[in-house]
Amino acid sequence: MARISVEVDGIAYEDDVEPRLLLVHYLRDRLGKTGTPIGCDTTNCGACTVLLDGTSVKSCSVLAVQADGCDVTTIEGVSSDGEWHPVQKAFHEEHALQCGYCTPGMILASIDLLKDDPDPSEEAVRQGLEGNLCRCTGYCNIVRAVRRAAQEMRVTTP
């Protein structure tokens, strides 16, 4: 067992974990953060994307021990004061989801993308989300949502 301390969605945790425990299993099974789904389990689909110290990672490909001392943000931690994050709102408004399985990962990857590029072109959004697969809605509305969120965020945070 290894002792880790992590901050997840603003709350500090200390836990003993097996070194082989994947971050996504730690989040779901230990902390009950089931907002982070497991999709492919092979680093492909991006459904389990979370922010690790502010940067998007696939949590099925990170050991919980590697996250020791880090700050993790899941989909459950992106809203604030009961207000959805602008990317969440835009996904809702643009109908950027159907079954919703890829959505938490899409939203976190989009938040990271917009941090880097506050006004991405359609092509830049497609490139930036190439590690996140959607198998039902398709990507048109997702791209539209990310660009709408970008616009929204530029207006509210000049």
């Binding site: 680093t43 994307t49 998007s56 696939k58 990857a109 190439e130 590690g131």
Partner: peptide, 9 residues
């Protein structure tokens, strides 16, 4: 190489 999340790690 792969995608942005993979390139972060």
């Amino acid at each position: 190489v792969a995608d942005p999340a993979v390139r972060h790690r």
